[in-house]
Design a protein around this nucleic acid. Structure first.
Lengths: 144, 144
DNA sequence: AATCATTGAAACAATCTTGGTTACATTCAG
DNA sequence: CTGAATGTAACCAAGATTGTTTCAATGATT
């Protein structure tokens, strides 16, 4: 099972989108996610590096959406949080004296890449805005 | 990163397909994969449960392919080794007093399922026989 | 200026998964 | 009977992930 950071990141962005332009504190967000504020800040720091959110320190500070919810796709989010490949190769290099051991990784690499790309393309069909509309159908979203 | 068992299982099945109808020992296979024989037996036990291979105890024993290499797809293999979903939900249930916390998991579940299905469909386009042909182009495969 | 709420960041602990190893009973061919 | 193999359980090691604590820095408010 892939870690929960992807799901938590979607949750956080939905909150920020729903409350926009109100900045939210990591403490408030952690209350909705039901975890520790530091866990939220760690994930939000990655999203800030990717240009999706901004933060303000000090009293009255918090986190605010910068990207449009319509433009944030689950596929893009997945790539931000989980760079590299989803499939793991051998832990130790296979035996190169065996023809199969020698060729297996090269043979698999492209198949794995294509499969992961198919998953990400499918994820790209969903946006944060779409999820918020599903969860809060009556809400009128304000956008950055 | 997903664990390496998927890659190792493909490796093992390619060996069994390439050497068919010769039974291979877990010790021999472990030598090609470069790991411990018990690790190989653990994976092969799952594949046996799924009806892909059979084992014989005792001297001269080993593992033999039962399914046709053409019929074993990477997608099917993936499902055998990794039942359930690839995406992890929250570790602790989100706060149901929050509208987003209440609806997020239900909103995500179907998107996650569709994305995983897209990946498995893409993996289904590749078979063990195809990989063996890539690695050992000159080999004439015998089939169960 | 003082206070208080917040982020930023490091350090550490707890838990889980995975992979590797050992050990030993069981099976079976020769 | 012997030796080589599987079957299985138990355990350890390493790594990843998550949660927690702590404290410095920031900045709004009074």
């Amino acid at each position: 099972m892939i870690n929960s950071r992807f799901t938590v990141a979607i949750h956080v962005l939905c909150l920020l989108a729903a409350e926009y332009p109100e900045p939210l504190t990591s403490r408030f967000i952690a209350g909705s996610v039901n975890t520790n504020p530091v866990v939220i800040r760690r994930i939000l720091a990655e999203l800030r590096k990717a240009g999706l959110v901004e933060s303000r320190s000090g009293s009255g500070g918090g986190w605010e959406l910068v990207a449009k919810p319509e433009s944030i796709t689950l596929g893009g989010l997945f790539q931000i949080l989980r760079p590299g490949t989803v499939f793991g190769m051998h832990n130790k290099q296979p035996n190169i004296l065996c023809p199969v051991g020698r060729g297996i990784q090269g043979a698999l690499r492209s198949h794995f890449q294509v499969a992961q790309a198919a998953m990400e393309t499918e994820l790209d069909r969903t946006t944060i805005a779409g999820i918020v509309r599903t969860i809060l159908p009556q809400t009128q979203l304000c956008e950055p």
